[in-house]
Design a protein around this nucleic acid. Structure first.
Lengths: 338, 338
DNA sequence: TTGAAAGCGCTAACAT
DNA sequence: ATGTTAGCGCTTTCAA
């Protein structure tokens, strides 16, 4: 195939390349007939303008990046679905990157996005580390970023997240109301973002019901299922919790496996609830109680917001935070009298 | 922020822009010391070369596109994970597009990818339609494409898929060996790609066991859970199958919900097995028997292969098909004596 | 090893 | 409404 350009088109039609160029823009500075002729010819030849040349001129890419820590669960797939949908509807292309929860990968990825590759970034933080200065290059290059779900406290960017404090409070209260007194909180990183907020909600509920906080019931464990199952098993043996509140789905799944292996009956011996977007929680045994975040909405909203930031000529926006309400779905796993 | 370019770097260092440019390429036509000086300065200034200018010159994008029909299940998230991993390791960026199972969206997306936006495409077919000439533009523009899992019969491109015929055969045989005689086959589109091959495996197994094929037991249903649950309910009422073989996970989930609603006991009254990459099939009630495709491997392999095609100067490759073996995991849902 | 200069394909200001 | 022209930022011969 011969590289076909507007020049070639122009020659074939006896026009100048500027006229041909105009045919592909929106302006009304071209004769509709001419435009039609050009587009027809372009279609026949399977031509469309080279985007690198356009982007080089226009200094914009019509591309955004999604950066997420993992692909493991429905939350992220739903969120991406929302992002992709809105992005496409606004004619943006969507790059995707996975950090594997590692802040060094995150930094590398972000470094690779400047130089005009993207007009904006939507990210859910890796959740690692305390130095997040790698985000500065985005600011330096005037590339807006919007976080969703997981943010960093030390950076001052806008984000869209769930009402995690209230949801955690409600979930923990629910366990207490179902007779739990020794509720363990399972978390991947209690000092960062969601782990932290959800812990606060948990503690607030304990306080309300005048149940003393026991730090031995906080299990700050790892991301791999082998490791966290071991940790959960030990927690159970040593602390004998009567309730488990998992801040992420994976930990609840591990807990269910541990319960199965160890013959712990849920909910009679131990109740369980977790943050999760699992759509088949009702088909599990026992049916799993969940705090379900509006992942799809979250993705859509973050993208809408990002597009606004991109559109603004200068980004001097303050940190704007949007909270979307999660729904609590109580099922067998957390209810007494089962 | 001031747009910083190689020219600015060059001025600051008292060099020419060509020299600076060379510092960012691999060639050995530059003094290592000079190179180091340049890179150091670049790092301080947070500069890296504008990719649109580079790409415009080099006529390559270092970007590939993933096109998938949906985000709904673990299969695709695992596959994407594999794709992203390999792509990143080879310094490719990854665009993602969702077709919603619609061939018209697919065509639109593909149209938007020529003009150099991508160097190659990895796709799982929408599964719709009979005219797939929209793929021709990729060939015309010399953009290689590799399919995974779902392909089109009428296009002659390479793909990576599971050993679906054998796996279907084995799954169906398993049901028969567990005393099923009226096995229904649930499918979204029996005439396309995976639906077709899996049907063939099912029929072959029936034949082996001399069970007559009954077309009333083939349920070709829709993608939405409301619709297919209704269809499955009717199928059960009218045909009274004693086994269900679902060609995709979603249909098995719907079947489980129907069974729950209608009080049909699985597996005693009806057995169930399906294609699925669900990682918590063992926690369902009943534990779900699955044919598990190596989604992650499939994504990795497809990407490896695509990169080979991209590297080749001229693409005259024949259709190469790679089959990856699925694993059959038999659990409670399909076993007799439960 | 470095520099000068042409040009990748397109857009937009300006001229007609 | 159309054409002319000057770059966008970079790479890459070619010459020094």
């Amino acid at each position: 195939m011969s590289q076909i350009t507007i020049i070639e088109l122009a020659e074939r039609l006896g026009l100048s390349k500027s006229t041909v160029s105009r045919a592909f823009r929106d302006g009304n500075d071209i004769n509709p007939n001419t435009k039609e002729r050009i587009l027809k010819m372009a279609d026949e030849l399977g031509f469309s303008p080279n985007m690198y040349a356009s982007n080089l001129r226009a200094n914009k890419s019509n591309t955004i990046a999604i950066i997420i820590p993992e692909f493991g669960n429905k939350f992220f797939s739903q969120a991406i679905k929302g992002i992709e949908l809105v992005a496409r509807s606004k004619n943006y292309h969507t790059l995707i990157y996975v950090t594997d929860h590692r802040v060094d990968k995150e930094a590398l990825i972000i470094r690779s996005l400047i130089n005009g590759r993207v007009d904006g970034v939507i990210m859910s933080a890796s959740g690692e580390g305390h130095d997040h200065s790698h985000l500065q290059v985005l600011k330096d290059n005037n590339i807006p970023i919007v976080f969703f779900d997981r943010t960093y406290d030390d950076v001052n960017t806008s984000y869209v997240t769930g009402n995690d404090f209230e949801a955690s409070f409600a979930a923990t209260s629910h366990l207490i109301e179902n007779d739990c007194r020794r509720i363990a909180y399972l978390v991947i990183n209690q000092n960062v973002s969601i782990g932290k907020v959800r812990l606060a909600g948990y503690r607030a509920a304990l306080k309300k019901y005048q149940i003393p906080f026991d730090k031995n019931l906080i299990l700050d464990t790892v991301n791999e299922s082998d490791g966290n199952m071991e940790d959960i098993k030990n927690l159970y043996r040593i602390q004998q919790p009567d309730g488990l509140f998992a801040s992420v789905e994976r930990l609840a799944i591990s807990a269910m496996r541990v319960a199965k292996n160890e013959g712990i009956r849920i909910p009679s011996e131990m109740k369980l609830i977790c943050f999760s977007c699992l759509d088949i929680a009702d088909l599990l045994e026992p049916a799993l109680s969940v705090v379900k975040q509006p992942a799809y909405e979250m993705g859509k909203m973050a993208t809408e917001y990002l597009c606004q930031l991109i559109a603004k000529p200068i980004i001097f926006s303050n940190q704007e935070v949007t909270y979307l309400e999660s729904s609590l779905i109580f099922q067998k796993s957390s209810k007494k009298n089962h």
